[in-house]
Design a protein around this nucleic acid. Structure first.
Lengths: 320, 320
DNA sequence: CAGTATAATACTCAAGTTGAGAATAATAAC
DNA sequence: GTTATTATTCTCAACTTGAGTATTATACTG
């Protein structure tokens, strides 16, 4: 007999609060009686009820978190056979069904209040090596040497080292903020994240760098989302989905930095933003800045018709 | 009772031959006895057989076209309820099943020979308004005025005009080669492509601009693929998947132009390619150029570790 | 074989963009 | 008032981009 299919809809709902990117999570117990883990909001497609996948997702998210989503984009569809065993919380597929999951990225404003049971959690607590705002060079820090040890072992050690170098910006390669998924997958293969330990041995020395695990392969989905968002921000004005209608230029910059995991040069950032015609002044002032009051700006919707691809370009630069 | 699901795997297999981008199609008869239409290679995921979606896709493609795919990337998952009625050729879902389709983009070399039943077809014969290589300004040409008429009608006429302007680079907006899907969807809504006529009235004046239809929503999938490929080419060295191991710089340029649908400035293109370190000379010459013999180059794999995001940037320029 | 067409390859140059830093202005806290 | 903190505006050299020109090596034509 043939196994049947279930289609899961997962949401990576991102907001930026207090200069930290956060995602909305719900609690899930992998086995009855087990300890709870953070999971992405998730539900199964109901072929008779949900006219489109995205609508199904919005319904599930409203039910589980109380949020009405605004900006939503499809991320990726995960369908490997070995991922599903671990993805069977409440509301999941029944035994014998193969689960395929379509993941979505949603952006909401920091003001959104989820209902009880759902909670905002810091993205970088789950992917600490992605935050380079306070370090210089590769944010990966202590992971570097551990990865080097790993990649030095076994056959195909050369191909491995090369992958590590490219992904983590080691050995002369440049750090690329968008390679979030590549980095996560290498850490998984190297047994340096807890999810890998569910099947394999776990390297204990990695403890301080590891980051908090999530249910099933949700951290991989999170990595996919962060990588995509970092890319998108450069050529589409999506940051504004995360900001209130008016904001100061520094607020805007901090949100971009939070997502990119990198500090930017202030003067150059401003130049870029207004050469791009992305914002316009409102004339009003914010005088709670801690220094000289700052003008409040708003997003100029008209850019969408003017420029080819308006985003808040991320120079690779640092400096406050 | 609840309807069950079927998961379709679709492949947009692209090659560039004679300076034209082509996709591999198979023939499908929508009803028994109906006339055959070009369709994308397609098969259903077999939950017990296919360990990953991508492997399932590769198997189906091999079976239907005889091709072993190299570069493959997931494109998008299509799951709207109204798309499926039309997607029931041989090998499709049984009645009462809801079909969700995961589409993939594959790049192969022009030399790949498909088996009987599969055929290469010119992408721009299906999306003629996307090829701007011989026109100046918006390649959309005659479609412009038809779209303007359409968008002028009805309520929400203002929002419509704006969408048309942005998508087609009219009214001061810039033509953006990547907005392929937006353009196709507008044409569909406007009743200017045959697929829309399956449900709605079709504007007869659009005949010469319309392009050839494909099965079900396969042309929309093609549009998604072309848009993605045009984007990708700029920041990842994927063009080389479409070229033989050695090639002249003009061959490389022609392939890029074919995909981008735009002519580029020769000197600047060369400068870009070798400043990016994308290629290296082989010392050998091609003397079948029709003019002075050209050096043969090969792709430098090492760029992958050096530069942040090496692609063959597309300046917006023209000129031969 | 001179003349013409075709393409390769190498330059040039002005205009624009980028990365980095410095200078000056307006507020709050002490 | 002095200091800290942030806002806002410049400057400047290095580099990139768009566009065009000049020179060279082939094949083809008559």
């Amino acid at each position: 007999m043939t196994r049947s299919l279930a289609l899961g809809l997962h949401a990576v709902i991102v907001a930026v609060t207090d200069e930290e990117p956060r995602i909305l999570t719900v609690e899930r117990r992998s086995e009855p009686g087990g300890s709870p883990v953070a999971a992405l909001p998730f539900g199964l497609l109901e072929p008779d009820e949900h006219r489109t996948l995205e609508l199904g997702l919005r319904l599930w998210v409203r039910e589980q978190t109380g949020l009405e989503l605004g900006y939503v984009e499809q991320l990726y569809t995960f369908g490997d056979r070995d991922r599903e065993a671990s993805d069977e919380g409440e509301g999941g597929p029944s035994a014998g069904e193969r689960l395929i999951s379509v993941a979505y990225l949603a952006l909401v404003r920091e003001s959104s209040r989820p209902s009880a049971g759902a909670e905002w959690r810091n993205v970088y607590r789950r992917l600490p090596w992605e935050d380079g705002r306070r370090s210089t060079g590769s944010p990966a820090g202590g992971l570097g040497s551990l990865l080097r040890t790993w990649s030095g072992r076994g056959r195909s050690s050369e191909a491995r080292s090369e992958r590590v170098d490219i992904a983590f910006g080691l050995g002369g390669a440049a750090w690329d903020g968008e390679k979030v998924l590549e980095r996560y997958e290498l850490l998984w293969e190297a047994g340096l994240v807890a999810e890998a330990g569910r099947d394999r041995g776990l390297d204990a020395r990695a403890e301080p760098f590891r980051g908090q695990p999530m249910a099933a392969d949700h951290r991989r989905i999170l990595a996919t989302a962060l990588g995509r968002l970092r890319g998108k921000i450069k050529y589409r004005p999506v940051v504004f989905e995360l900001l209130p209608t008016t904001f100061t230029l520094l607020q805007l910059q901090r949100v971009v930095e939070a997502l990119a995991g990198v500090r930017l040069h202030k003067g150059n950032f401003r130049r870029l933003v207004d050469r791009g015609g992305l914002v316009e002044g409102t004339g009003r002032m914010d005088d709670h800045t801690g220094g000289r009051p700052a003008e409040l700006f708003r997003f100029r919707r008209e850019v969408l018709r003017e420029r080819r691809a308006p985003g808040v370009g991320l120079p690779e630069a640092k400096g406050g």
